[in-house]
Write a protein that binds this DNA or RNA. Structure first.
Lengths: 340, 340
DNA sequence: TGGAAGCACTTTACCGGTTAAGTGTCAACT
DNA sequence: AGTTGACACTTAACCGGTAAAGTGCTTCCA
């Protein structure tokens, strides 16, 4: 089955390919009759433009790129990226823009990939995720002038447009919730320390705690359940254990909850737990975990729309998403009465 | 920063672009000196071929496609696809082939996407996952002659090449393991019924059970934790509850394990549990879940290599992966002594 | 010493689109 | 009646590669 070209259409319509191109693209210069006829033929023989031909001609690849450089072992346990991609797709599909999705070994490999994509004109722009403090990717992408949309953090994005959630407000909501329940020693198990949103949350967490006159402690995690278990154990075995723990993702929260239960803590009577990002996993354990909920699909859609705008030269500002929603479930409750 | 083309190289080398093209592609017809010089210049100015130009010229898109049509809600809770994609990428990267990854609403949308990719020459081939019984995609792809590699099932793939795991042997391994532990009533919570590998496992499960003279029961699930909870409850509340349950994925296994524990069953004293696919989640619960382990990354890599071969016209046969490995953890043990 | 062969290129054309510039025809206007 | 201009196209060129066919020079051999 040979794929039809505009030349085929031209032959059948008795026109030149230029006339056909005009007709197909709504350009003036062809009669309405002719345009109709051309469109009918195109429809009939199932013509669609050859992506490479068009790309070569107009210089646009009609593709965006998304690279994740976390180790494969850690990928996918979190639903975040799949939901994000699904949201992005929804917007891109209508515009006939494809998504090149890649998993890179590390940041060097990721940067090499951007250079390669740029040099080969494979993509018209990229989504940048998991922004780190002093992230080298930002400078590289700016230097390449590859349209970029940062997902997840306004800080550190430099001049690049971004979409993000208000981590600060979310942290405050959680801390206020816990303080209102009487908690005075609150801990937080962080995500990977180098990431901007981890830093934002940590700063906001310590601020909120001291602002409300309670003790806030951070233990370092890395999103894996191992780290969730370890951090939880350390916190609960410390001299002055917290009565509530906030985890930076759901995996750590669940492993933390189960660890605490194994250590004899009742939830929420002895310990309250809050998860960040509300995946189905949060309802897996008993009691179900109180969690910060956000619309990740919409987040992806917003990112996609903005990258499309940015790539077309429209100046786009940042977008702060609708606030996180604190979904209260069984894992948070009144602080235990002070011992002794 | 203008991107360099071979014409730029030609100008600097004092040659025509044809000579440059020959030099860059290792074609005969240029002296070694000239070739060196051209390669040096290319290196120096950071030239890489314009993907669209090359695609237009040689007719290859240098991209493969992968579509998943499960609802976004269910995606990503399972690490399977992320690991698969990471494995695929590893192979494709060296060959400078990109992966177009898309999440589709349903199978109709997926088929439309294939037609569109084909008509626009966006991809040179596609990976087909989650093969269903009477899958319409197989015929469409065969009709389009879009090189296709089926991942996960030889059955139902028609003439399309495939890579798959031996589900039959895996089922037998599990059932034999459980029977050896003394279990006589074994249940299985299935994945989505329409999928080929679900059917394969179900048939094999019932066969293995009757072959070993034990009772095998299947309860329908759909990979979600809700279905895991529901099926587990039904099974345990039935007149003759099983002493062991095998789940078709890890999410259902975990929710099943937790549900059983909440219903007062001790694991493995009262009930043994086996998970299909060994993600980190399996070690989340206590006792950790016995699980069927397989190398999903390698699976993806094999698929990628075979699709590359198929697309180049090499006749590729099917590949059965190394067998599943049953990782024994705390969730399986001797069957409880018969009551009464 | 003339012809053939081989080398190292160049010329030309093509892939399938888009687009600037050119052309023939007809109607309207002066 | 001749110019003008609009219309509906066509011609030609371009995007950046690849590749078949052609060219000029050297070398080798009979």
């Amino acid at each position: 089955m040979r794929r039809p070209t505009i030349t085929d259409i031209a032959r059948r319509a008795g026109l030149t390919k230029t006339a056909v191109s005009f007709a197909l693209n709504g350009q003036p210069g062809v009669s309405e009759d002719t345009r109709r006829r051309v469109l009918d033929i195109a429809q009939e023989i199932g013509w669609q433009p050859h992506s490479a031909a068009r790309a070569l001609s107009d210089g646009r690849a009609n593709a965006f790129g998304l690279v994740i450089d976390r180790p494969a072992r850690m990928l996918g346990v979190e639903p975040f990226f799949m939901q994000l991609i699904a949201g992005i797709q929804g917007e891109l599909a209508d515009a006939h823009i494809s998504l090149l999705f890649t998993v890179a070994q590390d940041q060097d490999a990721e940067i090499e990939l951007y250079r390669s994509w740029w040099a080969q004109r494979r993509v018209d722009g990229v989504f940048l995720v998991n922004l780190q403090v002093d992230d080298r990717r930002v400078d590289v992408l700016a230097e390449l002038r590859l349209p970029t949309l940062v997902i997840g953090s306004a800080e550190g994005a430099g001049d690049l447009p971004a979409v993000w959630f208000d981590e600060d407000a979310a942290v405050r909501t959680v801390v206020e919730h816990l303080v209102a329940l009487g908690h005075r020693r609150i801990a937080r198990v962080t995500g990977i320390p180098g990431l901007w949103h981890t830093k934002l949350r940590t700063d906001a967490f310590l601020d909120a705690a001291s602002g409300l006159g309670v003790t806030g402690v951070c233990a370092e995690g890395d999103y894996t359940q191992d780290s969730g278990v370890r951090a939880t154990r350390e916190l609960l075995e410390s001299a002055q254990p917290p009565t509530a723990i906030v985890y930076d993702n759901d995996i750590m929260a669940i492993s933390g909850a189960l660890t605490a239960q194994r250590m004899g803590r009742r939830l929420p009577a002895d310990l309250s737990i809050v998860a960040w990002d509300d995946s189905p996993l949060c309802e897996l354990v008993h009691p179900a975990l109180t969690a910060l909920h956000r619309d990740i699909g919409a987040h992806g859609a917003h990112a996609a729309r903005r990258l499309m705008d940015a790539e077309r030269g429209v100046t786009v500002g940042g977008l702060e998403e609708a606030p996180y929603l604190l979904v209260r479930r069984g894992s948070t409750g009144p602080a235990p009465a002070p011992a002794g």
